[in-house]
Design a binder for these strands. Structure first.
Length: 473
DNA sequence: ATGTGC
């Protein structure tokens, strides 16, 4: 397997052996060496072997080894090709939502910020295995949420109908069918609406630190010194179970349809087969659940703001900038063809004027939301026409450089605390959070710059972390 | 990522 330089910040794995197409990975000189002891390039090559795959399979600068497709991978497949649960990921519609306020960070003293953190934690369950505090609502609305997404919550008075235009797909991916979902997945999902989860998921209070395209940032409602809230979570146990179910059953399906699997994690079925359609139907349920999960969490964050500032969220300028997925498969048009784009740790970023942009962002292109690691900046990016080369995709974050285990073994308490700087966090026991240290991640500035300097994205705003809420066990 | 492992 040979990686050849193919222009600035761009390397190509030229088709060889059973690969049907090339793989292209976008990294600069700093990020390239980080792929040394990592199977992600091999995993891109595996994806390039699947039936119907379209040239090229793409790796983002935050790429790292995953299950099946690497995290930071984009695999587009024609109508005659396959769909793969492992190319979407365990956390279906893991994604990011950004909320703006009219508050200025300098007007919010640290004790008030701490109070805000505690109040949010009262409303939003965090940590692995946690169940919804809206137990009755979660159970009652679960089926409607899975079928119709965020709209089911809006109908109950959670948020406003106008919010739907500020969510990818209007908060509902078409084609969801609960009949495709196992009993097991259903049971795990119905009690988890409005929960954060663990691992890299978070609720973060941020300050708009820098406007890189001031006119556009202001048009999107951002201003320097502004307090924003970023929510990063997904479909919890529901999506996890769906991925597990289909990664197993599609090994059999692949055999049935004569598909040779380069690795088990890429288990797949023809997208037009009953097995392939069933995965799409189930995945769409989890996509809708995750959009609704972030929506209900925002509602609860709004309640916390109302408690602390003694003003209704609307009076605080509380509003949705955007909500975007980074683990999803969707049918889209690229190069005049209908293709199924699998994005796993990759964020859609449509260019200005593209007809698939939501109405408020039709002219400018929608914001692409990129969380950094805790303790480092996050970014608001915009799409470009050049990113047609990546099926209009950008990175999804900083990307891991140390596994959880390696982080726990090698990062000391002192190093951890230094890496967090002045950022507040809710976890007392450093061992529970060291695997999320900024030291376990790549440099998000390098990652974003890699794409920006070759015109695959534009930096609109940089957000600085003030305080982060992570999952508590 | 995950009621975190065959």
């Amino acid at each position: 397997m040979e990686l050849v330089r193919d222009g600035k910040n761009r390397y190509r794995l030229v088709r060889t052996g059973k690969m049907r197409v090339d793989a292209v990975v976008y990294v600069n000189e700093v990020l390239l060496p980080l792929l040394r002891d990592d199977k992600s390039l091999e995993q891109l090559a595996h994806a390039a072997m699947l039936p119907g795959v379209i040239n090229p399979v793409v790796g983002m600068p935050d790429i790292h080894e995953g299950f099946g497709l690497p995290i930071g991978g984009v695999m587009a497949v024609g109508e005659d090709g396959v769909i793969s649960a492992g190319a979407v990921g365990m956390d279906i519609n893991c994604g990011v939502r950004l909320i703006r306020t009219d508050l200025r960070v300098r007007e919010v003293p640290v004790p008030q910020l701490k109070n805000l953190m505690l109040t949010v934690e009262d409303y939003v369950p965090t940590g692995v295995g946690k169940k919804s505090k809206h137990g009755e609502l979660s159970r009652r609305l679960f089926e409607r949420v899975a079928r119709t997404g965020v709209r089911a919550l809006v109908e109950q008075g959670v948020g406003a109908a106008a919010d739907l235009e500020y969510i990818e797909e209007g908060g509902c991916l078409a084609g969801a069918d609960l009949d495709a979902v196992s009993r097991e997945a259903y049971k795990r999902g119905e009690t988890q609406l409005g929960t954060l989860g663990g691992g890299n998921h978070f609720i973060e209070f941020q300050e708009v630190a820098e406007l890189l395209e001031p006119a556009l940032a202001e048009r999107w409602g951002l201003f320097p010194g502004q307090l924003t809230v970023m929510i990063h979570t997904g479909s919890r146990g529901f999506g996890h179970q769906i991925c597990t179910d289909f990664s197993r059953s599609h090994v059999t399906a692949a055999k049935k349809y004569g598909i040779e699997l380069p690795n088990k994690g890429l288990a797949c079925a023809p997208s037009n087969s009953p097995e392939g359609r069933q995965y799409f139907q189930a995945m769409a349920c989890a996509v809708n659940f995750a959009f609704a999960n972030r929506h209900l969490i925002s509602h609860d964050v709004g309640r916390a703001f109302a408690d602390v500032f003694r003003k209704e969220p609307e009076k605080l300028g509380f509003g949705l900038v955007y909500d975007v997925a980074h683990n999803i498969a969707k049918w889209e048009r690229h190069g005049g063809r209908k293709v199924l784009v699998h994005r796993k740790g990759a964020t859609r970023a449509l260019p200005p004027g593209h007809e698939d942009n939501p109405r408020p962002y039709r002219e400018t292109g929608h914001p692409a939301l990129i969380p950094g690691s805790m303790g480092t900046s996050s970014y608001v990016l915009a799409g470009t026409e050049r990113a047609a080369a990546t099926f209009f995709s950008v990175n999804h974050g900083a990307g891991r450089v140390l596994s959880r285990g390696a982080a726990e073994r090698t990062i000391s308490r002192e190093q951890f605390e230094e890496s967090m700087g002045a950022v507040l966090y809710n976890i007392r026991n450093f061992k529970e959070i060291v695997d999320e240290s900024p030291l376990a991640y790549k440099d998000v500035d390098q990652v974003v710059q890699t794409l920006a300097e070759i015109g695959l994205t534009r930096k609109v705003a940089r957000l600085r972390p003030l305080a982060v809420i992570k999952g508590k066990d």
